[in-house]
């Protein structure tokens, strides 16, 4: 059985079929990228896998468990983390607190213990802090550890969001356009981190991305989507030269 399997996934908003009968499988340890023109339904697929949207038809199976109807807040507990296209950080909290929220699923203290700040809370807080500091070190975020997000530049926020997803301690990482809005060097860093995350942490990466140079650098396989339907699946090279994909991008 495969690691993540999406079978016949469809969603309809009113009369619009945003995603139509999409099936694919992601193997463990893979970097799998979804590309496609704007409005192709890439982010919608993401939103269904991370359970923000509920599909009208089809199944999502993660590690032999059907998660198609799982409540959103339980997705993180399964080890699935995500980032957002337009950055959804907690604006009025520090970087450290943002990352610590990622550790939420690892806290097991009750409300009463929290109010008393009991020894168990204290111990867990220290563990969280150490885990988060490892992420901070990996992504070189030391300089903004105690700064509020609202005062940080876009590129840094993008990295912090990646860090927050890593703080969850995920097995599967969903990255929604990790390079959008980044300059060339920042994109380059991002590519390194994605490869690092896969190699050093053994995390499977599912990604939506527009920047083809980044895509071909990091992806094992690429899926091209257009109007909610699959056009092609294969290596970056194969998909990029696929006649349908070329036509969709050049608009013939």
């Amino acid at each position: 059985m495969s690691y993540l399997a999406v079978q016949g996934l469809s969603i309809q908003f009113g009369g619009l079929k945003a995603v139509d009968d999409v099936s694919f499988e992601v193997a463990q340890g893979e970097v799998f990228t979804i590309i496609g023109p704007n409005g192709a339904g890439k982010t919608t697929v993401f939103n269904m896998i991370s359970r923000l949207y509920t599909p009208t038809a089809g199944r999502i199976v993660f590690k032999d468990e059907d998660i198609t109807r799982l409540p959103v807040q339980l997705v993180a507990a399964r080890g699935i983390a995500r980032t957002f296209q337009n950055i959804e950080l907690f604006e009025n909290a520090s970087t450290l607190d943002n990352l610590l929220v990622g550790r939420h699923r690892h806290s097991s203290t009750s409300l009463v213990e929290d109010i008393l700040f009991s020894g168990r809370v204290r111990r867990q807080e220290l563990e969280h802090r150490e885990a988060v500091e490892r992420v901070i070190e990996l992504l070189r975020l030391q300089h903004c550890r105690d700064m509020l997000i609202s005062g940080l530049p876009y590129g840094v926020r993008k990295v912090i969001e990646l860090g927050r997803a890593l703080a969850i301690g995920p097995e599967l990482l969903l990255l929604d356009e990790p390079s959008s809005g980044l300059n060339v060097e920042e994109t380059d860093d991002m590519a390194h981190w994605i490869l690092d995350i896969r190699r050093r942490l053994g995390i499977t990466v599912l990604m939506v991305e527009h920047d083809m140079s980044l895509v071909s650098r990091v992806s094992d396989r690429v899926l091209a989507l257009n109007y909610g339907k699959i056009m092609a699946v294969g290596t970056a090279q194969e998909v990029q030269t696929h006649p349908d994909v070329v036509a969709a991008y050049l608009g013939t």
């Binding site: 991370s50 923000l52 959103v72 807040q73 339980l74 997705v75 993180a76 507990a77 983390a81 995500r82 957002f84 959804e88 950080l89 907690f90 604006e91 009025n92 909290a93 607190d97 929220v101 990622g102 939420h104 699923r105 927050r164 969850i168």
Partner: peptide, 15 residues
């Protein structure tokens, strides 16, 4: 705080 600033993200973090 997470819920205050972004409910969507908070949910995805398991809150």
């Amino acid at each position: 705080v997470a819920l205050r600033d972004s409910e969507t993200a908070a949910k995805s973090m398991g809150v």
